[in-house]
Design a protein around this nucleic acid. Sequence first.
DNA 1: GGTTTCATGTAACTAGTTACATGATTTA
DNA 2: TAAATCATGTAACTAGTTACATGAAACC
Lengths: 192, 192
Amino acid sequence: MALEHALLVSLTERASSGYDLARRFDKSIGFFWNATHQQIYRVLKRMDEQGWVIPEAVVQEGRPDKKVYTVSDAGRAELVRWIAEPADLEPMRNELGVKLRAASLGDVPALLTEVKRHRDQHAHRLDLYRAFEKKDYPAPDQLSGPKLHQYLVLRGGVRVEEGIVDWCEEVIDALTRDTAPSPASDTKGTQG
Amino acid sequence: MALEHALLVSLTERASSGYDLARRFDKSIGFFWNATHQQIYRVLKRMDEQGWVIPEAVVQEGRPDKKVYTVSDAGRAELVRWIAEPADLEPMRNELGVKLRAASLGDVPALLTEVKRHRDQHAHRLDLYRAFEKKDYPAPDQLSGPKLHQYLVLRGGVRVEEGIVDWCEEVIDALTRDTAPSPASDTKGTQG
DNA sequence: GGTTTCATGTAACTAGTTACATGATTTA
DNA sequence: TAAATCATGTAACTAGTTACATGAAACC
């Protein structure tokens, strides 16, 4: 039950249509919370019924009409309540880890290729985050208030991606060494 | 659609009852994949119908009877197929990040307390992982095959937890400095 | 005498995904 | 003329959570 809140946060920063929110969940906000447009529309509808957002129909020329949502006082109150509420630890889900654990039953070189692909994708995302850091927050020491908070969220992305990339590298090194044909001796078995 | 596979991996390592799997998902395996007993029973039933697992009724004295599941050839084949299949990047979900992004609307000190609580819990989990590392893998350089793979999964847990703990520390430092009353000057606003 | 462990489940719900639908406008 | 963009949605499904139920045995 947090998509509601992610949408409220996003709408607090800028009043938007469902379409617009969906696009933003494909990039900026999507880096730390994700959702499809279908779900966004459904949740917006529910939030409207609960009175957390106020829809305003906007007629447009040359493109479809849209509904722009604004956060109501009730919505803002809900956000404040939710922020103070203790949050559960997110359960960790490492699919690559599950695969790795059973790797010896299957095709280890294929898995190695997969790990490399993940490394590349996470490294790419890390580059993106670092570019944002450089561009949007050149002097982090001087930051305060909301701008500081935004910066810290980005730092979370950087830290997590760094951890994943480093782990992928470690796995790639280890699997490569373990899969490679032994040069001198062949007493070291690879199958336990 | 990966709980099936996590269960298959777990059952490959040891034939188990649903109850037993549920307990293991509360610790070891649960550190990188989680599930409740209700869901485990449901998925086991489905896997039985699909022929991926073979149930064996075990009558016990002094305690309830149980069904012990073994992975079938079809199940093993499915695991091998799944391991080679490309996996999507797990969408990142950082609830604390969402809260932080809207922190200035609410109670920043309360959120700071929350971040500290998370830091402590993740640090505790990190300690646990490091203890496993020391105890179960004292000489990681000598590892190969399945044992190496298990070690690498644990390393993933260590990397991720390190990243989260470090991030929490960074957030705590920054929020503490930003929330503290300015000692000399008061020209630096905390509200953007 | 109350709680925890062992063991399996159902029922009702919320959350999230995938596929499909519509239709004008703009861009390649 | 085909595809992408803008804009909103429904329908059907899969995944996961919460609450409830049962009942014996062992432990404190």
